[in-house]
């Protein structure tokens, strides 16, 4: 394993800085929202992590296809890294949403389309890791993982469309329109600054973590290879 590239070290430092700035903007700079109060401040991190979470799942599906076409292990490393980092960020998204929902909707959880789709998506990627854990052969693990990310990436949008039906025919608790009424708000310019900076910050952090995870995957592969050599 080559030593850590300087670009990655620089990216590490930038990530820490933008995380700090994003936290400052969310906690101090942005004005307190009038209806929800302080808890609205988690919104910036909620949307930021949701964005990189979804980005990672899309990237994983694309690299899955790339692996199946090229059979190059680097796509597999990219895919696992993207799924792992995104699953972590998406977990934060769900928990933050739930914490916000408790004072806003007076419940930790409701089976609204977005929440349900988020939960199902998270479960798909947990299942992805269980699938990989059950396969020893790295090449087969890569193939099956690629197929499963592809299926997951296709199924999640359909899940969202189907669940929306349930809520539009049944009385709407939190739908697209009534979100405005139940905890929706219009952003002031300062809020907008914090919002867009959070998106930017989490994108940088995502790339940084992804890079680290890809390097870790490379190291893993090397150790597996060596173990095979030694035992032979």
């Amino acid at each position: 394993m080559q030593s850590k590239p300087i670009a990655l070290t620089i990216l590490d430092i930038i990530s820490v800085i933008v995380l700090g700035v994003a936290t400052y903007l969310a906690l101090v700079f942005a004005p307190t929202e009038a209806v929800m109060g302080q808890v609205q401040r988690v919104f910036y991190f909620h949307v930021g992590t949701a964005w990189v979470g979804l980005l990672g799942f899309v990237l994983a599906a694309i690299s899955g296809i790339a692996y199946l076409v090229t059979k190059d292990m680097k796509w597999d490393r990219f895919e696992v890294a993207a799924v792992e980092v995104s699953t972590m960020f998406f977990f934060i998204t769900i928990v933050l949403g739930s914490i916000w929902a408790r004072p806003a909707w007076n419940t930790w959880w409701t089976w609204d389309p977005r929440l349900t789709t988020a939960a199902v998506t998270e479960l798909i990627y947990v299942a992805y890791f269980m699938l990989r854990a059950g396969i020893e052969d790295p090449e087969k693990r890569a193939r099956f993982g690629a197929v499963y990310t592809l299926l997951g990436g296709l199924s999640a949008p359909i899940t969202f469309m189907v669940i929306r039906l349930f809520r539009t025919i049944h009385p709407v608790v939190i739908g697209n329109q009534s979100a405005e009424a139940q905890g929706g708000f219009s952003m002031t310019p300062d809020m907008r600054t914090a919002f867009f900076f959070a998106l930017f910050a989490f994108t940088v952090i995502f790339i940084d973590l992804l890079w680290h995870r890809i390097r870790l995957g490379g190291l893993q592969e090397k150790v597996e290879q060596l173990k095979l050599n030694v035992s032979m």
Partner: peptide, 8 residues
């Protein structure tokens, strides 16, 4: 404004 600092 409701006090939701704890949640935050």
């Amino acid at each position: 404004i409701p006090d939701t600092t704890g949640y935050m």
